[in-house]
Amino acid sequence: MRAVPRVLNRVLIGLVGLVLLVIGGSVLAVGLGLDPPSWWIHDSRHDVLLSDAERTRWRDEDWWWPVVIAVLAVLVLLALWWLAANLRRRRLTEVLVDTGDGEGALLRGRALESVLTSEAARAEGVQRSRARLTGRRLAPEARVRLRLEPHVDPGTALDDLTTQALAHARDSAGLASLPTEVRLRGVKHGAERVS
């Protein structure tokens, strides 16, 4: 299951929160004695949300209860999916290192990310780097972002990253492979006036 994109997640949470705030606040205001507008669902503080006639209107129809149950089931499944997507860890917290004695050791994911980031940043022409581990602890994957100086050849920077930082990380963690997604970005300098 892919994680819900951050922007979509925030928009959905904001919309749900706004709807709940407006409905709850208006019900509270009517309950406290304020006069609601003529189009509002409540008429007075003693009004009910659904009258007996509204509640029993569709009860005798054959399609009513299956539709209600199906809609509620879909809403529950969507809410559970959303909750699982938000609670899922996006970062790898630890990597299992084969020590050769059959036991293994755990390496912190942040420690490996830090080493990858600092070693990638030391390469010539790299202004800034950022590494992140994902995947499973037995089969980690890396995502590396490099911000390159304008004069640097992207192919050379990628080759340096592969043969140095990634190779060192893979070898030190005893991994057979370390699949990596690399994003390269060039630094944009503003125009300077020469006199």
Rank of each mutant, 00 (worst) to 15 (best):
M1R: 05
A3F: 09
P5R: 05
L8Q: 04
R10M: 06
I13M: 13
I13Y: 10
G14K: 13
G14I: 14
G17N: 10
V19W: 13
L20P: 03
I23T: 14
G25W: 04
G25N: 11
S26E: 15
L32S: 05
P37E: 00
P37S: 06
W39Y: 06
W39H: 06
I41Q: 09
I41G: 04
R57V: 06
W58Q: 07
W58D: 08
R59C: 07
D62R: 08
D62H: 02
W64T: 10
P66H: 04
V67W: 06
A84Y: 00
L87N: 06
R90K: 04
R91P: 02
L92Y: 11
E94K: 13
V95T: 08
D98R: 03
D98T: 01
G100C: 02
G102K: 01
R110P: 01
L112H: 01
E113R: 04
E113P: 00
S118H: 02
E124D: 15
R132M: 07
T134P: 03
T134Q: 05
G135S: 10
G135I: 09
A139P: 02
R143T: 14
L148G: 01
H151Y: 11
D153L: 09
G155K: 08
T156A: 15
D159A: 12
D159N: 02
T163A: 09
A169L: 14
S172Y: 06
L175H: 04
T180H: 08
V182G: 04
V182W: 02
V187C: 04
K188W: 07
K188R: 12
H189Y: 07
R193I: 13
